[in-house]
Design a protein around this nucleic acid. Structure first.
Lengths: 141, 141
DNA sequence: CCGTATCCCGACAGATACTG
DNA sequence: CAGTATCTGTCGGGATACGG
C-alpha cells in the first residue's frame, strides 16, 4: 500500500527528516489542517453527503457517485471508518454483502459543512465573475 | 506556468478524451466541487484566515505562515486574487511593496468556514479516539 | 459481490537560481 | 522586496487483474 496509511502524521508530503521544526503548518495545535486534509480528499464530502440519505452497499455507492474507482472508494471508506464518521457492517450472505452508514459523528460533520455548501451555491457566481474580470485584465497585457 | 491555470474546467485530473459523459462528478450543477478544490488547496484557508487579521505584505505573509514556499505563496495568492477573495495593491516605493488584503467576499467565505473550524476543534478528539480504536483492532489481526 | 495488489503516469510541491 | 523560471522527486489515483 502506497498511500493513506500514515497513522498520525498528517503531513501528506513530508519529505524532510533533517529539520527539527518540521514546519508545523501554522500553530502548535491546529486541528484545522487535519480536518482539511480529510475534506480536501476528493470523495470524502461526496460520500458523506450521499450516505446521509441512508445506508448503502459498496457497489450501490460506486454506481451512485459514478466516477470513483474501486480503489478510491474502498480507500476513502476505510479512512472514513477509521475516523469514526462512517460505520461498516458485514452480512454473511452467500455473496457477502457489506453496508455502509453514516455515524452520528459523521452527521455532525455534514451539518458543519453545510454553511460552506450554502456559500458555494450563493456566492459562486461572484467568484466566477471575478475570475472572468481577472482573466480579461490579464489577457490584454 | 504548469499548474493552477485552467480557466473553467474544474476537473483536476481529467484524462479521458473518449467518454462523452466525462464523469461530471456527481450532479449536473455541483458548485461544491469547485469550491472544494479551492479549500482543499493546502494554503488557501491559512492565508485567508491570516489576512482576516489585516492587510499584509508578501514577505510578512511568508514569515507568518512559515512553511509555505515563495512559489506556493505567490501561486495561491494569485488564485485567491483571481477568485476575488483577496485584493492586491502595489505601492511604487523604491523597493516595490505589495500589500494583500481580504475582500468582503473573502470575509463571507471565512465566516462560512467557521462552523467547520469549530467542528474540528470540538470533535477532533472523537475522531482521534476512533482512529486509535480502529488501529488497535487492525493491529491484532 | 466485495474488495486488495500491482503498475504506471501526470500533477504538483520544494529547492534553487535569476530578474525588475 | 516581490516575484518568475526551471528542474526534480514524490504521491495521488485511474486501469487492470486477481483473491475471498
Amino acid at each position: 500500500m502506497q498511500e493513506g496509511t500514515e497513522t498520525s502524521s498528517g503531513h501528506p508530503q513530508e519529505t524532510r527528516p533533517k529539520a527539527e521544526l518540521a514546519w508545523d503548518v501554522y500553530a502548535k495545535s491546529c486541528p484545522t489542517r487535519v480536518l482539511l486534509d480529510r475534506i480536501a480528499d476528493k470523495w470524502t464530502v461526496l460520500l458523506l453527503t450521499t450516505l446521509k440519505g441512508g445506508p448503502m452497499r459498496f457497489n450501490a455507492l460506486k454506481r451512485r457517485v459514478e466516477g470513483v474507482s474501486q480503489k478510491m472508494l474502498s480507500q476513502t471508506l476505510r479512512q472514513l471508518e477509521r475516523d469514526g464518521l462512517v460505520s461498516r457492517s458485514v452480512e454473511a450472505t452467500v455473496p457477502i454483502s457489506v453496508t455502509y452508514a453514516i455515524t452520528p459523528l459523521g452527521q455532525t460533520l455534514v451539518a458543519a459543512l453545510q454553511p460552506m455548501v450554502d456559500w458555494a451555491e450563493s456566492r459562486m457566481p461572484d467568484v466566477v465573475e471575478a475570475q472572468v474580470a481577472f482573466d480579461r485584465r490579464a489577457s490584454l497585457t
